[in-house]
Design a protein around this nucleic acid. Structure first.
Length: 313
DNA sequence: CGTCTTTGACCTGCGC
DNA sequence: GCGCAGGTCAAAGACG
């Protein structure tokens, strides 16, 4: 997949800012600013403020949309009908919710003729019935050898199997796992072959681990640890600073999908979650500050704005 | 012998 | 209230 470049152009408008000497090398006898000059500078102040506000709004928009989407998916949207199982209406709400999330990307791929990829990923927040507590529900699809009947999805954690059941809507059994690394860990995992493609294992995780992964470095948050460096960079070109979200730098999940030549659209959710994470935001602020302070246009405009705020000398 | 897996029984919630 | 289906428990067996 090619890098997706969100050209959040925060550059200055086509009309270049006044040269530095116009602002800093003002003749001593021109202390008194004409009304026309004042209007022009006022307009520029407004313009610069607008330019500074734009990236903030775009980031906030991206962040807010991601959060809203996760909330709608998990708790608000009614589950879609399941034509494959006419009796599925008897299922409980929680199960129906999971079915709504169940490998949407997987089914979409089947519709579009593509094959399932390793590490397909979907996540939602499920509302626990009778309370406002939210349970994180994550679904991962992995392609396995069809002859492999182990129902094991390696994810770095230790799991203890406590049950297995054959469900109505799927001839293959569903295995139930608990996290075996920490006795108090509330996370459960259900693993079942996809009803549509028996070579695809669908693992559903409920809850969040209250301990670091035993097989990963514990410093990074799960998403970051799973996907490596933040998939974002800021560059400055002739048209101004550009924020680039590089979907190719998303760690193993996307790479696994790429290895099979398939799209990894669900990983956009992972990336959006990272964009919303404090680590990403602080890194983004640092990079933006670095980019802005190294931009002579920005420093010129900033110096001009500061000068205008200072009393005449 | 300790740990893990298997599997039938039981529990629980939902729809009718 | 009953039946159904998913989820969980726990005893028994397998394995290192």
């Amino acid at each position: 997949m090619d890098a997706v470049c969100l050209d959040l152009c925060v550059g200055l408008p086509p009309s270049p800012p006044p040269p530095r000497h116009e602002l800093l090398d003002r003749p001593a006898d021109s202390k008194a600013m004409t009304n026309e000059e004042a209007k022009i500078l006022q307009a520029k102040v407004t313009q610069v403020s607008e330019e500074n506000r734009r990236p903030t709004e775009m980031i906030a928009h991206l962040y807010g949309r991601d959060v809203a989407r996760l909330g709608v998916e998990g708790s608000a949207s009614p589950p879609p009908p399941r034509p494959a199982s006419p009796l599925a209406g008897k299922k409980r709400g929680r199960e129906s919710m999971e079915a709504a999330n169940s490998c949407d990307a997987n089914s979409n791929r089947h519709k579009s003729g593509a094959t399932a990829a390793d590490g397909d990923y979907a996540e939602s927040l499920a509302t626990d019935e009778g309370s406002c507590r939210r349970i994180k529900v994550t679904r991962v699809c992995r392609r396995i050898d069809p002859s492999d009947t182990s129902l094991v999805v390696k994810d770095g954690y230790q799991w203890r199997k406590y049950g297995q059941k054959v469900t109505r809507d799927n001839p293959s059994p569903r295995a139930y796992f608990r996290c075996a690394f920490a006795p108090s860990c509330p996370v459960k995992k259900k693993v079942q072959r996809s009803a549509e493609d028996s070579s695809v294992l669908v693992a559903t995780y409920e809850g969040e681990h209250n301990h670091p992964s035993p097989s990963r470095a514990g410093e990074l948050p799960p998403a970051a640890a799973q996907n490596g460096p933040l998939p974002c960079s800021i560059s400055i070109n002739s048209s101004g600073p550009t924020i680039t979200l590089d979907l190719t730098k998303n760690g193993g999940t996307v790479q696994a999908a790429e290895a099979e030549g398939t799209a990894a659209a669900p990983d956009l959710k992972v990336m959006c979650r990272e964009v919303a994470s404090p680590e990403f935001r602080s890194a983004l602020v640092a990079q933006m500050a670095s980019a802005l302070t190294s931009d002579p246009k920005f420093t010129d405009a900033l110096a001009a704005a500061i000068l205008r705020k200072l009393p005449d000398y």
